[in-house]
Every structure is written in structure tokens, then in C-alpha cells.
């Protein structure tokens, strides 16, 4: 029997996996072990599978993913720090048929942009918000974030986050779920093949929701930052599982549409 040649193997019918056409060939600037690349890939795959490249607008934040527009072949807006939900609102309101998503880190979404985050969701903007929570400021070199764990050491909490000084880590995703404007709120991760598949399903659902005009879909991805955490990628995954998951438990938090407007409406106070 003849030996198998490469050309015999590389055939469409044998293909089980490929890089999404939405991903560009630009080498990523992310560190080894960083979660960003995986989440980018999942978003790209969802856009390709839903065939919405021409109708999707990404809003990049300030932070490590500020240059996300290098990696996904769609049109992009790059927002001021924390303002992505407001930028997304302006785009979506004036272009209601587009799929608009924000992609933000914990400093961007849960510190400087808290007001924009809460109010965009409270208005029920029909957008997708993807929230990368790695409990640290990555881009600026590992400073304490609103989501930094108690006792976690960072460059601005070198002796560990002290509750007396800095308060508790902010569970903004739980707050988001309290708002009537949110339709789907979930917390995912991408550190194992199984969690990657689950996260992709969540992203797909969120994008499908935005065409239904039922409110904001919000996905937190508990993520690693091995450079900021000063751990190698494998240790980072372990540290995340042991330290972050108990406080930031994975799973859907909300999947329902608010329908009690009548109940809470008051009589007109003025003719």
C-alpha cells in the first residue's frame, strides 16, 4: 500500500477544524496563556456562522483589547475608556438593524465605565456586552482592578487587596442581572475545552438575542492574566479555578425577558 501523501489528507471532506474567516492573520499582541485570544476566536466563529460580518460592529475598549480591531475582520469603533456602552448605544440607536457588541475588561466596564455600563443595560439597549474579568489591569502593568480578589497582590496592592482600604471585589454581573433591561446574563470561562464550547454557545445566544430586541445580553468571561498575576499559564488556570470561581461562580444568572411594565406603570400626572 502506498504511503499517504499530504494532498490525500488535506481535502474538504476531511476538515474537522479551521480558523474562522473573520480572524485576520495579524499576530496577536497578547501574552501566552491569556484568555483574550480564545474569546476573540469564539466571537469570530459566531459572526461567521451567523453570516453577519457585514452587519456587525464591534466597540473596542481601552485596555489590553484596545487593539482588538486588528484581529477581527469587521468594522470597529474604539471607545474612550469605559464609554463603550454609550458609544454602542449611539451606534445602535441610529442603526437599529446592526449587531453591535462591546468588548471590555474589568477596569473599563466595572470601574471607570460603571455608569455607562449600568445605564446602557438599564435602558435595555439591544446590544451584546462581553466582559473579560481577569481581576487586574493588564495593559497598564498589573494594577488593582475593581474585581481584584481580597488578598490578591497587584502592583497597586502589593501587600494584597485590603477590604478595609479598597472594599470588596465588585460583582457587577450580579448587579446587571438585577436590572430589568438585561435579557440574558451569564458567567463563563475559557480555560478548558468544555468551558470554551459552553462560552461559544453563550456568545451565539447573545448575538441571536440582539436581533430579537429583548434587551441587553451580558457575558462575563472569568479570565486569566498570567503576566499580571505573575504565574505561568497552567498555574494561572489553577489559581483562577481555586480562587476566583468560588466568588465568581460560572453559569447563567438570568435568562428572561422583563414583562411587568404595566404592573409598575403609574397614572399620568399631567395631561
Amino acid at each position: 500500500m502506498d504511503e499517504l501523501q499530504l494532498a490525500d489528507i488535506i481535502k474538504p471532506e476531511n476538515k474537522v477544524y479551521g480558523k474562522s474567516k473573520i480572524m485576520t492573520d495579524t499576530p496577536m499582541h497578547y501574552c501566552y496563556g491569556c484568555s483574550h485570544g480564545v474569546v476573540h476566536k469564539l466571537i469570530a466563529e459566531v459572526i461567521e456562522e451567523m453570516n453577519i460580518q457585514e452587519d456587525t460592529i464591534g466597540i473596542a475598549p481601552v485596555g489590553c483589547s484596545v487593539m482588538m480591531y486588528y484581529y477581527l475582520d469587521i468594522d470597529w469603533l474604539q471607545a474612550p475608556h469605559g464609554r463603550a456602552p454609550a458609544v454602542a448605544t449611539g451606534y445602535k440607536r441610529t442603526n437599529p438593524k446592526k449587531y453591535v457588541f462591546t468588548y471590555q475588561g474589568d477596569g473599563d466596564l466595572a470601574a471607570i465605565g460603571t455608569a455607562e455600563t449600568m445605564h446602557a443595560v438599564n435602558r435595555g439597549e439591544n446590544i451584546v456586552m462581553i466582559f473579560i474579568n481577569n481581576a487586574i489591569y493588564g495593559m497598564t502593568g498589573g494594577q488593582m482592578a475593581p474585581t481584584t480578589m481580597i488578598g490578591q497582590s497587584t502592583s497597586t496592592s502589593p501587600h494584597g487587596r485590603d477590604v478595609e482600604v479598597n472594599g470588596y471585589p465588585l460583582k457587577i454581573t450580579e448587579l446587571i442581572a438585577q436590572l430589568p433591561g438585561s435579557a440574558y446574563v451569564t458567567r463563563q470561562s475559557v480555560h478548558t475545552p468544555a468551558t470554551v464550547r459552553k462560552c461559544k454557545k453563550a456568545i451565539r445566544k447573545a448575538f441571536e438575542n440582539s436581533a430579537k430586541n429583548i434587551g441587553t445580553s451580558f457575558i462575563e468571561v472569568v479570565s486569566t492574566c498570567n503576566s499580571g498575576w505573575k504565574l505561568d499559564p497552567v498555574e494561572s488556570n489553577k489559581w483562577m479555578e481555586e480562587n476566583m470561581f468560588p466568588f465568581y461562580p460560572l453559569g447563567d444568572i438570568k435568562d428572561s425577558v422583563h414583562d411587568d411594565v404595566e404592573k409598575y406603570s403609574v397614572q399620568k400626572n399631567k395631561k
Binding site: I59, L77, A79, P80, R83, A86, V87, A88, T89, G90, Y91, K92, R93, T94, A115, E116, H119
Partner: peptide, 10 residues
């Protein structure tokens, strides 16, 4: 802050 960023979006 939000209004001007909404403008940025539109």
C-alpha cells in the same frame, strides 16, 4: 459623558 460618546457612536 455618555451623550458625547453616544454622538461618537452615531
Amino acid at each position: 459623558v455618555a451623550s458625547i460618546n453616544m454622538m461618537f457612536g452615531g
